[in-house]
Write a protein that binds this DNA or RNA. Structure first.
Lengths: 168, 168
DNA sequence: TTGTATTTTCAAAATTTTCTGAAAGAAATT
DNA sequence: AATTTCTTTCAGAAAATTTTGAAAATACAA
């Protein structure tokens, strides 16, 4: 397998993995492409490389920017927009965690609180069992939420320059 | 909101959350239903409650069993199969983690190893950058894999009865 | 302003995923 | 072994998601 084939394989695999992570295939493929691109790329280059339409490229690039793992780069004397991906995998993972925490975990907390709150008669066994389950989930989600928040905060401050370098 | 409404709301929400976790809506709803059911339920009851077809119910119940978070219960004198969900949320989370690790993380490791392995000329800058990115991902995935494996193992042995009770 | 290059939007089409329901398969009962 | 009860399978239907491509919007330059 030569470099070109390996790159193809990488992009392809990243697309498959993305799917099982709630990220659509194209979005993951664009991310993979930018991750291994030596230079920032523009929309046309991405379209050409992945054989996708302009609309599709545009939409997914925006989404990657929203996730905070791709950014726009402007080249002087060129009207086209170029895009580049964060290359540090640890940072990428942190951003994704942060985003997923916000989009998925936080809503669970809110909903569980609501459901538990508006519950009336706590006497009968069925109601008690229900409240107990919801409370358990709430407790667990809080634990997870706090753990992630801690990890993210740690990374944003002190960890960045020091301890975590060990993992790289 | 009364108990019935709260249950409905819970099942509905769990379905939505499931979607963003790579679990389909019906599967998550069945899980939610069993999580708060005082008794084990059979396929007909589940179909009736969630208004879904027999095929759909059957398929998703099997899948929940594969994930290890629902199990079959037989009642003496009744030919129907009944189903019940693991009620301990910590255990549920552990089983899901274990399963996702196996289905998602392990394949990434395998693929990254393959891609990195079959790479030839390590001299030019582009190749080097590519190998570096893949290596970084590999390293990160290994870290995550080990961390999860540790957590799972700990839970399966010693933790279960002792330390983690603090979190409940 | 007018023209040109580039990006964004969005309705319709294509694709993928999920669901249905009826038929086939199993298991228990008579 | 025939009947009844229940479970599984799976092809086609329905629903949801993703993609396309052309038109509209925006940005810049002359």
């Amino acid at each position: 397998m030569n470099l070109a084939e390996a790159k193809q394989q990488f992009i392809q695999s990243w697309g498959v993995f993305g799917s099982s992570w709630g990220i659509n295939r194209t979005m993951a493929q664009i991310h993979a492409l930018l991750l291994i691109a030596p230079e920032a790329m523009n929309a046309d280059e991405i379209m050409e490389e992945l054989q996708i339409s302009r609309g599709n490229a545009n939409m997914n690039i925006r989404e990657l920017i929203n996730w905070g793992i791709v950014e726009k780069v402007l080249k002087p004397g060129d009207r086209k927009e170029y895009f580049t991906a964060e290359k540090d995998i640890w940072k990428v993972a942190m951003r994704i965690m942060k985003e997923r925490k916000k989009r998925e975990l936080d809503p669970i907390l809110t909903t569980m609180e609501q459901i538990r709150e508006v519950e009336g008669n706590k006497k009968d066994a069925e109601t008690k069992a229900f409240i107990d389950t919801v409370s358990q989930i709430q407790k667990f989600a809080r634990q997870a939420d706090n753990a992630l928040a801690g990890l993210i905060k740690a990374d944003e401050n002190w960890f960045t320059g020091t301890l975590l370098k060990l993992f790289k």
